[in-house]
Amino acid sequence: MVKKLPYLVLFLGLAACHKTEKKAPPEVLRPAVQEDGRVIVMPNDTMAADFRTIPASASSLVADLEAPAQVAATVIPSRENPSQNLVLFNDAELASHYTQLVQHKINIRTLEISLARAKDLATNGAGTGRDVLEAQTQLENEKISLIEHEAQLEMGGFPADLLLKAKAQTAWVVCEVPENQLTRVKKGQVCKLRFTAYPNEEFTGILQAVNEIADRQTRMIKLRILVQNGGGRLKAGMFATVRFGVAEGNFLSVPQTAIVTIQGQDYLFVRTKPRTFERRQVTTGQQTGQSIVIFSGIRSGDEVVTENAMQLKGISFGF
């Protein structure tokens, strides 16, 4: 037993050493994020290969921009006053503003005559300066009231002069388009309409105006379209679909999967080196099939990430 003791001690010592040895944890590979998330560098080629790219290229695209629409107003002859056509609105509030606008116009003409008479009487000693002042005050108050209704109609997309000079047997159709599509339409452009009431017919309209105000919540902008309404077939409130023939021309385009959106801004990622990806803010245009037109932010030949772009979005923006 004594002779075997050294071997036993040696065995126990080796066992103890073996137990105390610990394996180092595997290295965690993480992308390097630079320039406040604008540049992402992958640690190796394997991780970089997960983000496939295609070169941005120019192509000739043609597409239709469609939007739901509604007949906002129609114009019919007035039986009582042939010199002033009637405008029938679908919106009761706009109808009220228009009615009061017309009434204020009539009142102003009457008060202008009264003011001229008061001045003439005062000049000839048959009236007083107070009569002139009162007539002037009434006229100014009427003009102020008129401006209020003009402003409300303008915000609704119908300038006062347009309504007062409206021709009978016409109709106005209103639709909305996203603000990022606004560059694809322009005043005077011809468009096609199909109404729910007449599904087998196609009407032609002219884009008469683009509203000056975008909706704060939806970021949509109203368009006003003039349509001929012979026979009075179109009625205020009717629903329609309006289609703008949009010839995109020779523009850069990328697959829809390349675009990521943060707080209303569009971005995509470009591979600038084998392991390096750069975030670019872009201005997008019309979507045609699975492609989206890019107006600015990239150049032809840039290697755009089309697969797993959402992962780069999370790395770049920190979520």
Rank of each mutant, 00 (worst) to 15 (best):
Y7E: 08
L163W: 10
C191P: 09
F317S: 10
P31G: 03
D45L: 04
L252W: 08
D120F: 11
L268V: 01
T272I: 08
Q100A: 12
W172N: 03
Q256V: 13
A58L: 11
N90R: 09
T272H: 07
V227D: 10
S59D: 15
V304R: 01
L86P: 00
E202W: 12
V132S: 02
G156D: 01
L14P: 02
A15H: 10
Q100V: 07
L153A: 08
E176C: 02
I108R: 06
Q287M: 10
A214E: 10
S78E: 12
L207D: 03
Y198E: 00
L162T: 01
K23T: 14
S83E: 12
F295W: 14
R130N: 11
A122S: 12
L115Q: 06
G37Y: 02
V173W: 01
L146M: 13
R30W: 06
L65E: 08
L111W: 09
T284C: 05
S300R: 15
A240Y: 03
E142W: 05
P159I: 13
S60R: 14
K19S: 15
A209F: 02
L234E: 08
A240M: 07
E154C: 12
G37V: 11
T137C: 06
A56S: 09
G249D: 04
N141Y: 11
Q100D: 13
G157N: 05
F11N: 10
T53Q: 13
F251R: 14
E140D: 13
T204S: 07
N124S: 13
G245W: 11
Q189I: 06
I40L: 01
K235G: 05
L133I: 05
V28Y: 08
S96A: 13
E21Y: 15
I294K: 02
